[in-house]
Simulated assay, not measured.
Amino acid sequence: MAEAQLQQFLEKVRQLNAFVALSESQPALRDALRACDQHHEVVALAAQHGFEIARRWGDSQAAATQPKEQPSNQSNLLSSSCPAAGEERVDRLIEGSGWRLERIHSCLASSPEGFWYDQAETEWVIVLRGSAQLQFEDEPEPRDLCVGDSLLINPHQRHRVVTTDPDPGTLWLALFWSADA
């Protein structure tokens, strides 16, 4: 680890420790923290009190807030501007006969009330950035997903998106294929 990254890491630990100390001394803040259901709610609450705990220790401030421009023959799966709150953007990255690979960027997105995806294809999805909750119709509780979590969704396995993170959003990589391929 380079010295600059070490200093970023140590600063994040200091911010977290200071936020914890403040929450222990202020019962109202502790109650607000207890009421948080999502990681992004904790991050927002900390930011309201002047603490920056969301940025990963290896990211610069500019990298955390601005997508980098890429040459036309190069892409970065993590670089894009966040869609508007409540929306998602789907970019088809590559496709072949009976399959396609998509990058999905969601921002505070959720499936409409009562809507269930019921697709004929198999889908494998992984969270690249952020977090989300995905609900399967045959399961009583939504699944919490964070960076690195993946799921295999079988054809006609009804599911819906309960929530995704606010700006900078949730990035998914999704591979779809049909049994005929």
Rank of each mutant, 00 (worst) to 15 (best):
P112M: 00
P166H: 01
G148C: 00
P166F: 03
D167M: 05
L134I: 14
Q157E: 15
L101Q: 09
L151R: 09
E102R: 05
D138T: 15
E139H: 12
V162I: 08
R129E: 13
E121N: 13
S106T: 05
R158W: 02
V161G: 01
C107V: 00
Y117I: 05
I104Y: 01
S110K: 06
A109C: 13
W116E: 08
L145A: 00
V147F: 06
P112A: 07
G148E: 04
S150P: 12
D138M: 04
T164N: 00
L145H: 08
C146I: 15
R129S: 05
E121T: 15
L101G: 02
L128T: 11
G114D: 14
R129Y: 03
V127L: 01
Q133A: 13
E123T: 04
L108C: 12
I153N: 01
N154S: 15
G114S: 09
H156T: 12
D165L: 03
P112Y: 02
A120P: 11
P112S: 07
H159A: 02
L108K: 12
E121D: 12
E113C: 07
D149Q: 09
P155E: 00
C107F: 00
F115Y: 14
W116I: 04
Q119S: 08
A109Y: 13
D118T: 09
V147A: 12
D118V: 05
V147W: 06
L101M: 10
E121Q: 13
E137K: 15
P166R: 07
N154Y: 15
T163F: 03
W116D: 10
Q135D: 13
Q135L: 09
W116F: 07
S150Y: 13
L134D: 04
R160I: 03
V161T: 04
E123W: 03
P142F: 01
G114F: 02
S111I: 02
